[in-house]
């Protein structure tokens, strides 16, 4: 049994059209999976649906054998799925330390949280130096470290990242993906969405391509971009975008 199974999920916002039009996807224990796809393919929508921010209109989300449909986000995070949304999941007016505490909010054990925060500080010493500063005063790279630090405090079973590299300088992006690999070494499973397809896939074990609300390809991350079908899809979409 896979860790996460997504089974024919249809979802959309409010009364709007279906954004996901029957997505099937599996995430295996311990892997890093990267979802790529053109704008509007439904990548973020898929993560939001898994996190409980959107209710699937059809289909099932099954995590460790349990159907998650209809659970609230705070119930889903307690089952071991953490979602780090796009544009930094930080609270800009809270201090670094408070943000780390927010990361571990779902932990019931206070001393475990303190321990984990110390470990996050050990991995990112700059955060320790600035623990009393408001998150908004950190640089983009430091903010992303704080986001990663939050995931380290919680140590969810599955961590979902929505475009972690967005708006970061290239050398920081490389560091970031190293941190993501580190999650895997610490026993977490990672499902991430990346606009930066090449680097995202480099970091991943498995890749998956989403287009127009459906999964169109799934396979080992190596060489996924060299696959003629994917190239055709990407180029095809690009062409469409240019002419429109």
């Amino acid at each position: 049994m896979s860790l996460l199974e997504i089974d024919g999920v249809v979802a959309g916002y409010g009364r709007g059209p279906d954004i996901l039009r029957g997505v099937d996807l599996t995430v295996e224990e311990g892997e890093v999976q990267c979802i790529i796809g053109p704008n509007g393919a439904g990548k973020s929508t898929l993560l939001k649906t898994i996190a409980g921010l959107l209710r699937p209109r059809k289909g099932r989300v099954v995590f460790q054998g349990e159907v998650l449909n209809g659970l609230r986000p705070d119930q889903i995070i307690r089952r071991g799925i953490a979602f780090l949304p796009q544009e930094r999941s930080l609270f800009p007016d809270m201090t670094v330390l408070e943000n780390l505490r927010m990361g571990g909010y779902a932990l019931e054990d206070k001393s475990l949280m303190s321990e984990r925060i110390e470990e996050a500080f050990a991995q990112f010493p700059i955060l320790k130096e600035r623990y009393k500063q408001k998150a908004r005063t950190l640089s983009g790279g430091q903010q992303q470290m704080l986001v990663m630090g939050r995931a380290l405090v919680l140590r969810p079973h599955l961590v979902m990242l929505d475009e972690p590299s967005l708006g970061l300088a290239p050398q920081i992006v490389a560091q970031l993906f190293e941190i993501v690999r580190g999650f895997k070494d610490q026993g977490m499973t990672v499902l991430m969405v990346e606009q930066n397809a090449r680097q995202g896939l480099n970091c991943a074990d498995r890749g998956c391509v989403l287009d127009l609300g459906q999964r169109v390809f799934d396979g080992p991350a190596d060489g996924i971009l060299d696959d003629p079908r994917i190239q055709e899809l990407y180029l095809g979409t690009q062409k469409k975008a240019e002419t429109s």
């Binding site: 921010l53 609230r72 705070d74 949304p85 609270f91 809270m94 408070e98 909010y105």
Partner: peptide, 24 residues
């Protein structure tokens, strides 16, 4: 308290608070 931290998270961004595990 932890409850207070949760309330402050809600005041800043309810969606983020919810995804952080707060029954908002």
């Amino acid at each position: 308290s932890k409850f207070g931290l949760g309330l402050r998270a809600i005041s800043q961004d309810e969606i983020k608070a919810e995804t952080a595990g707060i029954p908002t």
